[in-house]
Write a protein that binds this DNA or RNA. Structure first.
Lengths: 206, 206, 206, 206
DNA sequence: GCTTAATCGAGACGGTACGTCGTGTCTTTTC
DNA sequence: GAAAAGACACGACGTACCGTCTCGATTAAGC
C-alpha cells in the first residue's frame, strides 16, 4: 500500500503567492496520523489535529477541504517517505514472487500501526467520491501499474497465457485480502498462498 | 449494541414491560433509509431522522445505541421484507448458477437506490466493530451459508474437487465484485462472468 | 437608575411550550454583570458568560439576541430586585428633594460597582437602536414618569409656574450629570446642588 | 495611544526615520469614516478598513494602536478641514448668539452623515479611557475654551452676573442636547431655544 | 372501567465541534 | 526602510448535533 509514488514529484508551490509554512504542514499530517490511530476516524476532529500540531484551525482549513483530505495527505507523505524501489520482485517465478508480495500485504494489513489509519481512510473515501478519485489517481493507479508490469513480464515469459486479462488477474489476486481485512476476518499467510495458487491455476487454465 | 429488537420470526414483544410503538419504529427505519440516500452517512443525524419520522429523539435513543445501529436495522427490515426463498438456484450447472447470482449482485450494487445506503452502512461498520460483528452474524453469515451449501452441492455432484476449500472459493468469487464496488470502478455483468469462469477453472485445476 | 419598575410584572411564560430553566437564567445574568465589571464591555464574550455561568452557549443564544441584550436584562433584574418604593421623595420643598435625589444619582454614577456595567450598557445601546428603544421603554420612561410626577406636584403647589415645561425641566436637571459622567469629568454633590439651584431659578423666572 | 500623528499645524514629518506615506494615511482615515457610517462601530474592522483603503493591515497597526484611534483621527482630520474661524459669534446679544450656535449643534447632531460616525466614536470612548482623554484634550477642551470665552465676554458686558460659574453654564447649555441625541429623542431648534432661554434666566437670577 | 406506569412527541439543557471571521504579529517581496 | 500582501497562532463567533433530562398527553395492562 505504500511503496513510493513516482508521479508528481513536488507540486511546485515555490511561487510568490502562497508562502506556505512547511513545518506546520508536517506537524498537521503527523498529528492527524497519530490521532486517527488513537481515537479512530469518527472521533478525529480538526480541532484535535490543530491542538496536537500546535497550529491554528484556519491553517488546516486554508489548505485542506476536509479531515478526510488531511488524512489522505498524511498517507501520501508516508508513502513518499517510503523506499525508493518502486518495482515488484521479479525472480523469474511468478508464483514465488506473488506469494512474497501478498504475504507482505497481509503483514501490513494486520499491523496494528496501519490498521486503524487505513480503516479511517477507507471510511473517509466511502462517502467522499472526490477523495476516492484522488486516492485512485495518486496511490492506487501507480500501484496497479507495478502489478500489471510484473504480470505482463510473466505473460511474456510464458508463465501466463498470451491473452490473459491482467486487470482481472490483479483483482482476483488482491481483492480477497482487502475483503477479509474489511470484514475483520482472519488474514494469514496461508490464505495468501492459497489465493495465489488457485488464481494462477485459473488464469493458466482458462 | 444492547436492547436489539427481535428479528422477523418473533413479532411479539419481548416481555410485559415495554409497550413499544411499532408505527414509530417503522417510521424511524424508513426515515433513516431515505435520509442516508439523500445526504449520505456523514450528514445523517439522529435529529434529522427523528424530525423526518415525526418522532421524539428519545424514542430513537431508547431503542438504538447509535445511528449506525438504526441504519443496520433499516437494512435488516429491508432484507426481511424481501424474498421468501432464501436458497441460491441449483439447476445442476454450477457455472450457470453462479453467473446468474453474480450478475444479480452486480445489478444490486450498481442500483443507485442501494448504492448510497450500502456505502453508508459500510462506513458505519468500518469504525464500529460491534456493528460489524452484528452484521457478520445477522446478514453475512446466513448468506455465506447459502453460498457454501450451493458449492457443497456442486462438490458432491463432482463439479468441484472433493477437497475444495469452500470458504476460499466464496472469497475468490465475491470479493472482486465488492472490491470494485468500493473503489468505484466499473462493474459489469461481463466482469462477473469472467470472475466465475476463471475462479472455477482455478478451483477445478488446483 | 434602579428604583423598581412597575411595568410588566411577570412575562407569564408558565405556559406549556418553553420550559425555561430559571436557575440558568439567573446564573447567566449574574455572570454577565460580574464579567462586564471585570473586563469591560469590549472584552465581554458570550463564551465567557456561558463558562462563568456553567451553561451551554446555546442556552444564551436561545433566549437573547446579543450580548447587549443579556447585559440589559442583567440591569433589569437588578432594578427589579431593588426597593419597592417607586416614588421620589416629596417633603414639600422641591429644591431640598431634588438636591437629595441628584446627590444620590451622583453617588450611584461614581460607585465603581456600577460605573463599568453602566458604561457597558451605554456602549451597547449606542450602536443598537433596538436595545436603546427597549431601555427607553422599560427603564427610562418609568423613571421619567416619576420625575414628572414630582415636578407636577411642585407646580401644583405653586413652587413652579403653571406653564412650566416638565420634560425640559427634567432634561435640564439630569442631563448635566449624565454628560459629566460620560465625559469622565469630576462629579460631585456640590455640582448637583449648583445644577438644582440654577435650573430651578431659571424655571421659576422664565 | 502612542505614536500619534502630528496635528494640523505641523504637516511635516516628525523626524527623519519614518517616511510615512501620506496618501495611505488619508486613504485609511477616509475608509474608516465611510465604513463606520455604513456598518456601525461594532462591525468596523481593521481588515475592512485596510481592504477599503487598499492598504496592508500592518500599515494601520504601525501608526494607530486601535480602531478607535483610527476613527478618532478620522474625526480630527474632518475637524481640521473645517472652518478657519474658530471663534463663536459675538454680536453683542448672548441669547441670540447662543440660539444660533445651539441650533447649529442640533442641525449637526441630526445630520445622518455625522450621526453614525459620532455614535461610533462615542462608543469607542466609552470603554477606552485613553481615547476619551485624548478626545477631551484635542477636541473638547479647545471647543470648551471658545465657549468659555464667549460667556466671559457676556459676563464682562454685564449680560451675566460677575460671579457666574462658566463651566456650569456650559454644561447646562450643551448637555441637554447631547443627552437627547444619545437617547435618540427628538432634537429640534425649538428645544435649543427653550434651553437657552431657561438656562440664561437661571444664570442671571441665581 | 379505572388506575397506573411506561412510551410517546416535544424540546430545553450542558457540551463538543463545526467552519468563519477578525486580531495582532510575522515574513516575504516590491518599490 | 516603508508598504502591499497575506500566512500564521489564537480566540470568539453563531450554528448544528450530541446524548440526557424533564415535561404533559396518550395508551395499553392489570387490577
Amino acid at each position: 500500500m505504500a511503496k513510493r509514488i513516482p508521479s508528481a514529484p513536488e507540486p511546485a508551490r515555490e511561487r510568490s503567492g502562497p508562502r506556505r509554512n512547511e513545518a506546520s504542514r508536517r506537524a498537521i499530517l503527523t498529528a492527524a496520523f497519530a490521532l486517527v490511530g488513537e481515537v479512530g476516524y469518527a472521533r478525529l476532529t480538526i480541532e484535535g489535529i490543530a491542538a496536537r500540531a500546535g497550529v491554528g484551525k484556519q491553517t488546516i482549513y486554508r489548505w485542506w477541504p476536509s479531515k478526510g483530505a488531511v488524512l489522505f495527505d498524511a498517507f501520501l507523505a508516508l508513502a513518499e517517505d517510503g523506499d525508493g524501489d518502486p518495482a515488484l520482485p521479479d525472480t523469474g517465478s511468478l508464483e514465488a514472487d506473488l506469494r512474497l508480495v501478498l504475504r507482505a500485504t497481509v503483514a501490513e494489513l494486520v499491523d496494528p500501526r496501519y490498521d486503524r489509519p487505513m480503516r479511517a481512510l477507507s471510511a473517509a473515501m466511502l462517502n467522499d467520491s472526490g477523495l476516492a478519485a484522488e486516492y485512485e489517481q495518486r496511490l492506487e493507479a501507480p500501484m496497479r501499474e507495478l502489478k500489471r508490469a510484473r504480470l505482463a513480464s510473466a505473460r511474456d515469459a510464458g508463465e501466463l497465457p498470451a491473452d490473459v486479462d491482467l486487470d482481472l488477474a490483479i483483482d482476483l489476486l488482491w481483492s480477497p485480502l482487502q475483503s477479509r481485512w474489511l470484514a475483520g476476518g482472519e488474514l494469514t499467510p496461508a490464505f495468501a498462498d492459497a489465493v495465489v495458487e488457485t488464481v494462477l491455476a485459473g488464469l493458466r487454465g482458462s
